[in-house]
Amino acid sequence: MIRRTFLLATAAVAMAFAAVSPAEAREQWSREQANKWYDKQPWLIGANYNPGSAVNEIEMWHEATFDPATIDKELGWAASIGMNTMRVFLHNLLWENDAEGLKKRMGQFLDIAEKHKIRIMFVLFDSVWDPNPVYGLQSPPIPGVHNSRWVQAPGEARLKDASQYDKLEAYVKDIVGTFAKDPRIVVWDVWNEPNNKGGGNYDHIPDKNKYVALLLPQVYAWARSADPTQPLTSGVWIGEHWDQLDKVDEVERVQLTQSDINSFHDYSWPETFEKRVKQMQSYGRPVLCTEYMARGNGSTFDGSLPIAKKYNVGAYNWGFADGKTQTRLPWDSWKKPYTYDEPTIWFHEVFRADGKPYRQAETDLIKRLAAAPKGVVPAAPK
């Protein structure tokens, strides 16, 4: 997701931390607990997953458009190249309108994933793209535009209305609580790029960072109150000094001090990716890269994935199979839609819609790295 500058939070935001009662939540894992958990995991390798038949996370999970057949087919492709995990977005409006149906479909999805030996990282909230989500059947994709119908959660109206927070709290506690002991879930990502202004044509929510900084620590507390056996995380994605808490904003400080395991996003060159890994590992906790791989931006499987394997950092690339999100198209398609010409190279995605790899060398690399022991980067075949 495209990087954007962000609004600085006001000094009053710091009061939010005091408002969260630690008595209501389990403790954050110690570094020792986090590393003990991580030592038991395989090297986590996967993608951010939305089925090709869904234009966004609401369409993926809505009863009328939930598509188990496509999910089964595409997760089979993932398993065939050694992927063992997927990062998958939820939405609070799905729960508010059909809580039992959402949980039922989550169970179906987890059954399919388990069949393919794939474990899931669920994302509860998201600050990127359209800030005005609408429940129900979704509009078709805008021709030629990257991720044209993706929606934020909870969305601008809910984010700015504290009287609605009880619904957000109930959503988090019910979803995390229902699956708190489920081994098919590997991690809870509580909020995707929380201090992102929006992306695309949506950078306009006044004081967004202030509201997020007030709400994010509460989300961590709500999730912990369900006593999940899985770790909590939220990935930092912007700024230059992630290893220095005095140089990050209030939202990033929450992410870096409240997560059980740390995570980050990087869509840049391999040198930057390695620098980011080292910054994140300075906290002594396990590290996951929960978004990377934008070919036209210098972030590639060839460049970043061997570094992740070397440092034992789990890696989830953005995009999987070409479909209605149209993320094979670059970020700049928001300004100049690719309605007639395909991009010179695909921006995201691993597979074409028919299941053929976009680049066979990439899927061969993923499979080779996935099969090797932790920390081992095998030589390419001659």
Rank of each mutant, 00 (worst) to 15 (best):
G314Q: 07
E250Y: 04
D39L: 08
S234G: 07
V186T: 15
K117Y: 00
Y316C: 08
Y283L: 11
L93H: 09
A223G: 10
M83K: 05
V128K: 01
L90C: 08
K197C: 03
F122S: 00
E291L: 05
A54K: 00
N196Q: 11
G319M: 06
P133R: 00
P357I: 13
N192V: 14
T233N: 04
P133S: 02
P143I: 09
D302V: 13
L93K: 06
K278N: 07
P357A: 07
Y292Q: 10
A12M: 05
K382D: 11
G323A: 08
L214I: 08
V251G: 00
E291C: 07
V186A: 14
D166T: 07
A361V: 15
K73E: 15
D189F: 06
D246P: 05
I71N: 06
N147S: 11
N209Y: 06
H62N: 13
Y338P: 10
G136Q: 11
L288M: 14
I261M: 07
G155N: 04
A321T: 14
G235S: 15
V376Q: 03
L44G: 01
P357Q: 11
H348Q: 15
K73F: 07
D182S: 13
Q258A: 03
V186C: 12
S299Q: 11
E250A: 11
M121C: 11
D126P: 03
K115I: 01
